[in-house]
Computed example of a mutant assay.
Amino acid sequence: MNREKLELIRRTRSMFGHITPFIPDFDAFTARGGDGFAAVQDTAAIIASTEKLIPPRYQKADATDERVLGWVDKVVSQAKPSRLSHVPYLRSGPSLLLLGPTGVGKTHQAYGALRRLSIIGIGCAPVAASITDVFAKMRPRPGIDSEAIFRSYANAPLAFIDDLGAAKATEWNEEVTYRLVNFRYEHRLSTIFTSNAPPKVLANRVGERVASRLTEMARRVPIKGVDRRLGGIT
């Protein structure tokens, strides 16, 4: 087996010893007739891609809210083991809407959920961005394929869209938000949304069409507390 990739897996798992991986022992997995080499390759790729995705501030994030952990369990239960490596991959699954004021830890919980899934060894090919960054990347300008950028967020098996409803209300922003949410709603793709806006305010900001789909597709989880940033908590 590839020692470098085994070390990546070992190092990352050692930081979160309380999380049980889907394949905890690759040697034992091989002894049972599994393809340990393929399992290591896939698991290392899952961990490496998630590490690259998560910003430095959230590199040690872990989900702690019981409702978020319940969502992670549902995602794990719906992932299907691949034929060769037996590493599970997500094709469709549940969504989550984390609501609460600024600084209470919504983004921390969301990135913690992504990290937890990677340590368990669930292939989700996640993408993550604030909705304002999605708009900025898609803004029409020379040399930019806006539709390709849109598809990268729309088609991902798992997406984390931060700060929903935070952008200035424009017809273009509302249409992009609707297209993104509606595509993921129709294809039952797992999505974590966060928003600082209360439910009624959020509905006004994103439009009734988006609000209706969010209500049906995502479990609403209010996050309470004080602004962690003011106290220096990260």
Rank of each mutant, 00 (worst) to 15 (best):
A110M: 04
G112Y: 13
G112N: 01
G112V: 01
R115W: 00
R116G: 12
S118Y: 09
I120W: 01
G121S: 10
G121D: 04
G123M: 10
C124Y: 00
C124G: 07
C124R: 05
V127M: 13
V127R: 15
V127I: 05
V127N: 07
A128T: 06
S130E: 07
S130A: 09
T132E: 15
D133T: 12
K137D: 15
M138F: 00
M138Y: 07
R139V: 11
P140I: 02
P140W: 05
R141S: 14
G143L: 07
S146I: 03
E147C: 05
I149E: 10
A154Q: 09
A156S: 15
P157D: 12
D163N: 13
L164N: 11
G165V: 05
A166L: 13
A167H: 10
A167C: 10
K168N: 11
A169L: 13
T170F: 01
T170M: 11
E171R: 14
W172I: 08
V176H: 02
T177W: 00
Y178F: 12
Y178K: 06
L180D: 10
N182S: 03
N182W: 00
Y185G: 12
Y185S: 02
E186W: 00
R188M: 11
L189F: 03
T191L: 01
I192F: 04
F193D: 09
F193N: 00
N196H: 06
N196T: 05
A197E: 10
P198Q: 14
P198S: 08
P199H: 09
P199I: 12
V201P: 03
V201S: 12
A203W: 05
A203P: 06
N204I: 08
V206Y: 00
G207L: 01
G207D: 09
E208S: 13
R209M: 09
V210I: 09
V210Q: 00
L214H: 06
E216G: 01
A218H: 02
R219M: 15
R220P: 00
V221D: 04
I223D: 10
K224A: 13
V226W: 09
V226A: 13
